[in-house]
Design a protein around this nucleic acid. Structure first.
Length: 411
RNA sequence: GGUCCUGUGGCCGAGUGGCUAGGCAGAGCUCUGCAAAAGCUCCCACAGCGGUUCGAAUCCGCUCGGGACCUCCA
């Protein structure tokens, strides 16, 4: 382990986490409470649980009486294990032997407060002596303080469903007399080439390695937005498999999406034109309306992305003049434009990746484009091809547009 | 060992009883000095074996893969 003070360690990984979230264009939360900052609230909660008869002290530690809770709350249709579909009778037989079990009334009971052994660094005073909180009570205490006795959505990884979230439900229900969360959103795990990420498989990839491409499993670097888009292409409750092939596919798809989107966003549609192609007009409105439906369907971002890809060929057809603007009503174009801004930027959280020294680089590319135009005008294709091919090798792709202009993309 | 989840075309990934998901790759065409990009078209899959049903990727059973969890990491 690293030789750092405990809170120094916390600081270090908190900063790393903030960096990663920022890379992914995640909005920062309005509050990020810490367990160590809420010892008092946790102790108060434990006191209430004891007072209500669901907690008991044993040798300086406090445990939650799961069997009693299950007996009482099963009658209210809220048995212990309701989230993960487990029943307590099976648990009682299969739980493996662990140390200090003899302090508990039942093996399934979990700790609310633990007596600190002499060597334990983190320790606080409590009515039960020096110790530290059990591992589930912090979430219940902080959620109650900042979100109230009952709140709408509780998130977390699938791996936390049992026992962590089950214990939270039990504690909070006893303490607050209300079920804490109305909805639970458990996101599933990510696998690498079909295998879970784990030290034993030697396939752990850090985000910094993913973004730099500096890892044996990776054939190239992947931009944060590529990874974000890749994740959005699946529904969050399913497992997601990382592979170079899959990430490269996502990278290309995202580029196509963002190019069409950026073009559309820059257009201004005016006039009172009625749709010449009513079928297309209706279809566009349907696709846009469905975006909201799909988000309402348990955040089905995969379907949202699929619908956006239905719209992209229409945008590109307008761009390349395969269709004319009056094929669709002006109001529809404006609706598509404004809704895509909302869904792509605000809801999916996608943004154009900005490179360093972009302005200078753009200037250079503009200059080369000018030279290339001149050489093309002189039928000097050797020079024009040289410019295009050399730029391509550097990852800058030139495209001849229909109207004679040239555009470019960085990859 | 137990509980739960899962197995979709070359790759990723939606979809829970009948209707084209979508992306990437691949093939053809259009456009184009060439190329790329873009547009159009094609590629009709649901682990295997039984069963239910007029009809199943979707429901049930079994088999074989993959995964998560099984109380003091949170």
């Amino acid at each position: 382990m690293e030789k750092l003070e405990p809170m120094e360690l916390v600081q270090k990984y908190t900063q790393l986490y903030h960096w990663a979230m920022d890379q992914f264009n995640n909005l920062p939360p309005s509050i990020e409470p810490t367990a160590t900052g809420h010892i008092v609230e946790q102790i108060e909660m434990i006191k209430k649980i004891i007072a209500d008869g669901y907690g008991y002290e044993a040798n300086g530690s406090v445990y939650f009486d799961v069997v009693k809770y299950n007996d009482v709350y099963s009658k209210k249709n809220q048995p212990y294990g309701i989230l993960s579909g487990r029943n307590l009778e099976e648990q009682l037989d299969t739980t493996r032997e662990l140390e200090n079990q003899e302090e508990k009334k039942n093996k399934v009971d979990f700790a609310l407060w633990k007596k600190a052994p002499a060597e334990h660094i983190m320790r606080w005073q409590s009515p039960w002596g020096e110790g530290f909180p059990g591992w589930h009570i912090e979430c219940s205490a902080m959620a109650t303080k900042y979100l109230g006795k009952q709140f709408d959505i509780h998130g977390g990884g699938m791996d936390l469903q049992f026992p962590h979230h089950e214990c939270e439900i039990a504690q909070s229900t006893v303490c607050n007399h209300e079920v804490p969360a109305r909805y639970w959103m458990h996101n599933n795990m990510i696998t690498i080439n079909g295998r879970k990420m784990g030290k034993s498989y030697n396939n752990v990839i850090k985000l910094s390695e993913l973004f730099s491409g500096n890892h044996p499993e990776l054939t190239q670097a992947y931009a944060p937005m590529t990874v974000r888009f890749f994740i959005l292409q699946s529904q969050y409750r399913g497992t997601l498999d990382f592979s170079n092939e899959a990430l490269q596919a996502a990278e290309k798809a995202l580029r196509r999406l963002m190019e069409a989107y950026e073009w559309l966003k820059a257009q201004s549609f005016v006039g009172e034109a009625k749709a010449k192609d009513e079928a297309l007009d209706t279809q566009l409105n349907t696709w846009i309306a469905e975006l909201t439906e799909f988000m309402d369907d348990d955040i089905n971002t995969a379907k949202v992305v699929a619908n956006i890809f239905e719209i992209i060929p229409v945008i590109n057809s307008l761009k390349d003049k395969h269709i004319t603007q009056d094929a669709v009503a002006t109001s529809t174009w404006n609706h598509v434009q404004s809704q895509l801004v909302v869904f792509i930027e605000s809801i999916l959280g996608l943004k154009v990746e900005a490179g360093a020294n972009l302005e200078q680089l753009k200037g250079v590319v503009e200059l080369l484009i000018e030279i290339r135009k001149e050489s093309k005008a002189n039928k000097d294709f050797a020079t024009s091809d040289k410019i295009r091919n050399q730029l391509m090798n550097m990852g800058i792709q030139l495209k001849d547009e229909k109207d004679g202009s040239m555009s470019y993309t960085f990859s």
